[in-house]
Design a protein around this nucleic acid. Structure first.
Lengths: 258, 258
DNA sequence: CCGCTTCTTGCACGTTAATGCGTACTATTC
DNA sequence: GAATAGTACGCATTAACGTGCAAGAAGCGG
């Protein structure tokens, strides 16, 4: 692994979780803690994080003053943006990602790092527009009759088109998320498309704002144990979170910069 | 293996993985690491990657300069808006309208009266987004691989989908418009889609800003006598306009409001 | 066909970056 | 105020780097 690559990964991690632990990083990247500390020290010197005893935290304040151009700062302004940055951190280079119609998914698209090569398959024109200026993002748009209410295309054509694609990761825009019932949606057509996407994807991720958690919508999309990754905010219902953890879901807490 | 061939392969790999390791490349292409380093150095000098210790990383996109469509559409905002209003006036209630990818067409979509019931078929996600809040506009989106440069989808899937539809009116986004040559486009894929749309539409309309008039782009879309309606600004080249009038085209002059 | 140039490649060299370890220091905890 | 965990510093080692140079291949003119 390249050194620079590692520091990028650490920044990614920082944005995703809001904090990093030196010892964990050392084990994960198979380097000594010294090296990690050096990385963190450099990042802190560049104003990209705040070094603390045992690790580092996401810098809270305004944009780092040093950066002249400072690429679009994905500094998480509000909850949804933080969630989106954390969720985007799950995407590995070169992966194929499904993003269905949801405001959270639009935020995730906006949080994809500009240097990350990725193929995004979506039924949401707004996501395609949001990714127009990502030089390394390829976008495949699922067409059909556009549902202005939900902001996406849900026809049979969209489903038929996506069934030709095998994705690595599907961020399902959840209308409801419950520890026993699983992922649910408000609309039958929406639910059908989500189910099709889930079937064509290796992994399933849910990035849920706290108001969605522990709620149930009428139409089932996927059972709780099908959720591979769950990205949540600190104030998410702990009981639901625990339930998912017991099912083997990887839970990611979108960090709050203090 | 030729040198240039190798550098192309390296770029390919960069784009795919977001990073390359010099040692791996050296082994894969059976050359010394020195040679790989030289390649990477040249690529970096050309701005195609970022050289780091041990390899190279994909460079982040150059600038967040908003989508190309947006950029173009802000140029002559007033003129374009007047043109769009006049063009939108050609749409009768209940009609089915093709709008392909063009900044003028985006403006036309925005100029469609909210009370007008219409079905818009487009390959441009930005148009779908613009029409989201039109309660009486039904939008059918043509999907496929999204071309960020042009802001639309141009694949065979888009053409196949639109060929199932018979429209009343097609606003062709013209890259060039000439009294003898007719409508032309800059891109072959773009031209092919435009031709397919023209074939599926009863009438063909061109709303052209004055800089497009009396110019020719490389790829032919439709002959001049196929244009049923021409919407222009007052300062359009009078010779070209007259030529179209002689061919039976209805010429509409976008009124100057003030 | 022969010399010439140009380009690419690999190798040898000294230089620099990155890492891990030992040691001494400092923060945190109880 | 120890005990513990984390940190800073210096140093040695390794890997990667840049440069200069020479060998070989391809192109060119005579």
């Amino acid at each position: 692994m390249l050194a620079e690559e590692r520091t990028v990964a650490i920044q990614h991690r920082l944005k995703r979780d809001g904090r990093v632990v030196a010892a964990d990083l050392a084990q994960e990247f198979a380097v000594s803690e010294d090296t990690i500390r050096r990385d963190l020290r450099d990042l802190a010197k560049a104003g990209l994080c705040r070094k603390v005893y045992g690790g580092a935290l996401l810098v809270a304040g305004p944009a780092p003053k040093a950066g002249p151009i400072m690429q679009r700062s994905t500094l998480a302004a509000d909850d949804k943006a933080r969630l989106a940055v954390a969720a985007a951190g799950l995407i590995a280079p070169g992966q194929i990602v499904f993003l269905d119609a949801a405001s959270t998914n639009l935020a995730i698209a906006g949080a994809i790092p500009r240097a990350l090569p990725v193929t995004v398959v979506t039924n949401t024109p707004a996501i395609a527009v949001a990714l127009s200026d990502h030089a390394h993002a390829r976008v495949i748009l699922l067409g059909g009759v556009f549902d202005a209410e939900r902001g996406g295309c849900f026809g049979g054509a969209a489903i038929a088109a996506l069934q030709q694609i095998n994705a690595d990761l599907f961020f399902v825009g959840a209308c409801g998320l419950h520890g026993q019932i699983g992922v649910t949606a408000f609309d039958p057509a929406e639910a059908e498309l989500k189910r099709a996407m889930a079937q064509q994807s290796t992994r399933l991720a849910v990035a849920a704002t706290s108001d969605k958690i522990a709620t149930i919508a009428p139409f089932r999309v996927a059972p709780a144990d099908a959720v591979d990754h769950l990205v949540i905010l600190p104030d998410a219902d702990p009981q639901t979170v625990e339930m998912f953890q017991r099912l083997g879901t990887n839970v990611h807490l979108a960090g709050r910069p203090s």
